[in-house]
Amino acid sequence: MTLWTELARASTPAGDEINLRRKGDLYEIRFNGLELMSNINFRSETMLAERSLRLHGRPVRRVLIGGLGMGFTLRATLDWIGENTEVTVCELVPEIVDWNRQHIGHLAGHPLRDRRVDLRIVDVQRLLEWNGSDYDVILMDTDNGPDFTVRETNEAIYDESGLEAVHRRLAPDGIAAFWSATVSAEFEDRLDALPWRWRRDDVSLISGRADAVHHIYFAGGGLPRSVDARPTGMHSKPGRHPEGRGLPA
């Protein structure tokens, strides 16, 4: 039996423990003992970027990504944008940036080496509060979605004030997208309260398995006017365990 090998460990100022471990070709980041993300299936992270840029349908000048993770959302973004587009990536934990550079960058083709990337070691909420230009696309790939945040303070990303901050920094014809482990009725109610169109896409990870589904919420003036709040794709019960981004057993 192949055993896990710990590659790195870090502690946050709040006392949380984060570690990176490997078993064969499988890499996993754990937060306080719970799986936060792995490279076992990253289709929904890729779709977060690809579908947002497709829905936008026009050349983009500036993209904001909340959360670096293992770099899969960033890689998909870079593969879809032009040479003159700037991508700002906010990552709160500096060690995760170091791990991407030292241990796991190859998984997503070393996206941090791309000259279009503007990496910020900062809470994405703080950046949204700063004055600055609008973003054409905002991709929020933090935590495990609105209902399963790893830090209590991250709940503000998905509450009314957080959504209003995203709305203020989004270009009038822009699109914001939020990755989620589960369908969140409360989050959908908050999206309803803002003056934008939105939709939910349910991304099937394995054909024929209704229990292997991630979810993406899209919102903003850049969505086609035919879009309403009814979800698209699969409509089964959410199937991904909120402890991580691996597939259910």
Rank of each mutant, 00 (worst) to 15 (best):
A181M: 07
A181V: 11
A181W: 02
V183E: 00
V183A: 08
S184G: 07
S184E: 08
S184C: 11
A185L: 15
E186P: 06
F187R: 04
F187Y: 14
F187W: 13
F187A: 06
F187P: 07
E188A: 13
D189N: 03
D189A: 00
D189I: 02
R190I: 11
A193W: 10
A193T: 10
L194C: 01
P195S: 06
W196I: 04
R197S: 13
R197A: 10
R197L: 12
R197N: 01
W198L: 01
R199G: 09
R199Y: 07
R200V: 13
D201T: 12
D201R: 09
D201M: 01
D201V: 12
D202W: 05
D202A: 02
D202I: 15
V203C: 01
V203I: 11
L205I: 14
I206F: 12
I206N: 01
S207I: 03
G208W: 09
G208H: 14
R209P: 10
R209D: 05
R209W: 08
R209E: 11
A210W: 01
D211W: 07
A212Q: 08
A212C: 14
A212K: 10
V213H: 00
H214T: 13
H214M: 15
H215Y: 13
I216M: 04
Y217Q: 01
Y217S: 05
F218R: 14
F218W: 15
F218S: 04
A219R: 04
G221P: 13
G221H: 05
G221R: 14
L223R: 03
L223I: 07
P224K: 12
P224E: 14
P224W: 15
R225L: 13
S226E: 07
S226F: 06
S226K: 02
S226P: 10
V227H: 03
D228I: 15
D228W: 12
A229I: 03
R230L: 14
P231S: 05
T232N: 09
G233P: 01
S236G: 11
S236D: 12
K237P: 08
K237L: 05
P238W: 02
P238F: 02
G239F: 02
